[in-house]
Amino acid sequence: MLSLLARIIKTGTVTEQAPQVGSTDIEVTGENLKRAITRLYGGRSLRIRHVDAGSSNAEEYEMTALGNAYHDSERFGLSFVASPRHADILTVSGPVTRNMEHALRTAYDMTPEPRMVIAVGDGACTGGIWAGSYAVVGAVEKVIPVDAKIFGDPPSPLQILKGLLAAIEKART
């Protein structure tokens, strides 16, 4: 017992220093995003419904990272929802495969207006390395109207945040 206590005292703190809050690129972009959302409609949050229209899942990994403890995008007012009925933004990844074309169109149809469609990743923006394949339709804009594109294969969480910020600011004007 005593030896354990002595060891705790002797060892001290060995974990890394906590990152400085409020100074990194993510925080700055996030705060701007929050302000942009407030300016957009006076509210505090935007809901995202993500549609995987046949991506390599790289984009999904990066978007999942948006919600982890490090990025914590919910503090900027972004959250992911399960139904397009609840969504403001539809994010689409992947070159739209022929199997997912109908599903994507249905999801778009069922998102209430006003809505925004953002293509995430090179596949969704241009078709990427799959462009021209018989199995894919190609870029998302060939299926549904796209409001903004976030390039990258895959885009990092920071790039996604910046892309969302740009899209929202563009939507305001």
């Binding site: 139904s83 149809d109 209430p112 207006e113």
Partner: peptide, 10 residues
């Protein structure tokens, strides 16, 4: 009012 189908989760 825009009427669409019921959301069926695919």
């Amino acid at each position: 009012i825009r009427i669409t189908d019921t959301w069926d989760c695919g």
